[in-house]
Simulated assay, not measured.
Amino acid sequence: MRFTSAAVLSTLAVGQAAAANIRHASFHARRAVEKREDKPVDWASVTYDLKNVDWSKVNWNSVFSSSATPSSTPPPKVEEVKVEAVSTPTPTPTPTPSSTSAAPAEKTEKPNVVEHITNDILSGLDSFLSKLGISQKGANSYEPNGGIWLGDSDWSAEFTNGGSKDVKLFCWKANGFSGMSLNVNQPAISINLAPGASQNVSFAEGVPSSCAPADDSTSLAMFGGIQNTWWEVTFGSTGAFDVSRNVWMQGTNIHSQGSKCTSDMDTCVFKCKDESAQSCEKGYELYNCDAGNGGGGGYDPIMDGTGGGCSMGSSGEHVKVTFS
């Protein structure tokens, strides 16, 4: 498998089903707190039942005089005054919001893919695309889409910036031979990778694709593709991956490690036979790639030239790709 610098994209055997979907979700617990207090009697609402009192028998002198003297004649018996307190129910006041009141319930919604994209991932992207001559940002989907999307799955690659400055990662589908021309086609992925940062990217099985790094020194080739080293892949049990240097021989170093094979600048790599050439549409070869190191080559009838690359697992593959 390989690309050429003019208008060619590698082809590999088509795999089977689309990659599995890994969903992310987060949930927040809701806590309710109630404060219960004893309520005092409202004396203003108390009534007194005095209908059975015989007021003619009350000794008013003893009631109102604090100096009354005892008498030998016992005072008339006063019938017991019944006092009944009747409490009138009062409405419960609405609690005043405080720091201990119940928090409002949060909505559980499907995650917005834009919320997953951090400022670091998009840092400096607009100005960089404008300078490079690419009119559209990458789709940067977080959902399985039959092509390429951000996130992990059974068929994926972890891209790491092993350099000392920011790089932009571009990934695209072949779409015949047109997908690599990013000046007229929207890339599937266009994100920023800070030094030391990593990003998982998933690929559907059987979809020929490629990714390439770009920095301030990178430009577009005549055909509208990234003029740099490319990492090429078709995921699937019969798929393969490789590093292609023939697009731009002086490009960024790429090292990719799979479960069975390594592809880097010297191993399982496509490069020009004439190493003094900057790029080559023809006259390239697959180097150091055979069954002995987990790879394999052969004749590519579509490209009328050499094909091949690193083999991968039968039911899944996670390749670690590092730019430096």
Rank of each mutant, 00 (worst) to 15 (best):
F3A: 10
T4S: 09
V8W: 14
V8M: 13
V8D: 15
L9S: 15
A18G: 10
R23T: 11
A25F: 06
S26L: 02
E34Y: 05
E37N: 03
K39S: 04
V41H: 13
A44F: 12
V46G: 09
K51I: 01
K51C: 00
K51Y: 06
D54H: 05
V58G: 08
W60Q: 09
W60G: 05
S62A: 13
F64S: 08
A68V: 10
P70D: 03
P76Q: 08
E79H: 02
K82T: 07
E84T: 14
E84N: 10
A85E: 12
S87M: 10
P89C: 02
P89E: 09
T90Y: 04
P91Q: 11
P93V: 13
T96Y: 08
S98T: 15
S98A: 14
T100G: 03
K107M: 12
T108F: 12
V113K: 12
I117N: 12
I117F: 06
T118F: 05
S123M: 12
L125P: 04
L129A: 12
S130K: 15
I134N: 11
I134G: 10
K137R: 14
G138L: 08
A139W: 10
E143A: 09
P144H: 09
N145T: 08
N145A: 02
N145F: 01
G146W: 13
W149I: 00
W155L: 02
W155I: 01
T160C: 02
T160W: 01
G162F: 01
D166Q: 11
K168F: 04
F170N: 07
W172C: 06
M180K: 15
L182E: 13
L182H: 12
V184I: 15
N185V: 03
N185T: 07
I189H: 11
S190G: 08
Q199Y: 05
V201I: 15
F203C: 04
A204G: 10
G206E: 09
G206L: 03
V207I: 14
V207L: 06
V207S: 03
S209G: 06
S209K: 02
A212M: 06
P213N: 08
A214Y: 03
D215A: 06
D216T: 04
D216P: 02
S217G: 08
S219F: 01
L220A: 11
L220R: 11
M222W: 07
G224M: 07
G224L: 06
G224D: 12
G224P: 13
I226P: 05
I226V: 15
T229G: 08
E232W: 04
T234N: 13
F235V: 09
F241T: 09
D242M: 07
S244K: 09
S244F: 04
N246S: 09
M249K: 10
G251S: 12
H255R: 11
G258T: 03
S259R: 06
K260V: 04
T267I: 03
F270S: 02
D274F: 01
A277Q: 13
S279H: 06
S279I: 00
K282Q: 10
G283S: 14
C289T: 11
C289D: 10
D290Q: 04
A291I: 03
G295V: 00
G297Q: 14
I302A: 14
I302K: 14
M303N: 14
M303P: 01
D304A: 08
G305L: 00
T306I: 10
S311R: 13
G316P: 08
G316Q: 09
V319N: 12
V321P: 05
V321E: 09
F323W: 15
